[in-house]
Write a protein that binds this DNA or RNA. Structure first.
Lengths: 115, 115
DNA sequence: CGGGATTGTTTCGTAACCGTTTCATTCTTC
DNA sequence: GAAGAATGAAACGGTTACGAAACAATCCCG
């Protein structure tokens, strides 16, 4: 399934999806957290705190706290790296996959309305 | 200019755009604030605090404070309604238009990369 | 081994945001 | 006009997030 996305419709798509996220109350993820979550799920592992901090141009505590929040939500998991026990590897979870799948469905649904 | 947006690419688009916004530091707008900003700019006026609160399913003080922040950033303006001086009309600004234009450019640029 | 570097977390003080409640202003209706 | 409704802003207490710096655990290299 594909849809046409024009330049004038790009902001509209962002608009409707953001509105839906806020209105449904599921928008409790900040843009930073959403960026982290998407990065973990859409780029190949391994993912570390330091790597995410560098990629997103934020400080390490920001990543740690975001992982605290998202870990409590169950959408990510932390595992010590056995190869280098200083590292913490950020792992995907089933709940996270479901969450993003639903989010993707919203995007597609809204994009489809942009005919 | 149009691009094909498939289901599997929707999350990827959200990913790259969010990453860009966070990395550049312009991502200091929360998802709520972004939803408000986009709503003001993409739907026909007039926009009031009460109307936005109802549309976004949040309380009025949330809108008031978001307008405080975005007003300080210069991306929206508040004007008393002369017809009904209880109302405050949320107005667009040049800075806000420029901000969203750049944001839209990022979306389009990233969407174009999704060939 | 052992000093230094690296990684992730915690602490600390500050600032922002939230929801509820309250207030000041303005309109509407009698 | 006066009473009541409506609107947006402000006050208040609690929660959360931030950056900088300090910290503990671990690795690395001599």
């Amino acid at each position: 399934m594909t849809v046409e996305l024009s330049a004038s419709q790009a902001l509209g798509l962002w608009h409707t999806v953001s509105m839906e996220a806020v209105r449904s109350g599921d928008g409790d993820l900040s843009m930073r957290q959403m960026a982290i979550l998407l990065h973990v799920y859409l780029t190949p592992p391994p993912h570390t705190v330091r790597g995410l901090a560098a990629t997103l141009n934020v400080t390490k505590p920001v990543i740690t706290r975001a992982l605290d929040t998202m870990g409590a939500m169950g959408v990510i998991d932390r595992v010590r790296d056995d190869k280098d026990r200083r590292n913490v590897l950020i792992k995907r979870t089933l709940a996270g996959a479901v969450y993003l799948e639903k989010f993707g469905d919203v995007i597609i649904a809204k994009a489809r309305d942009l005919t």
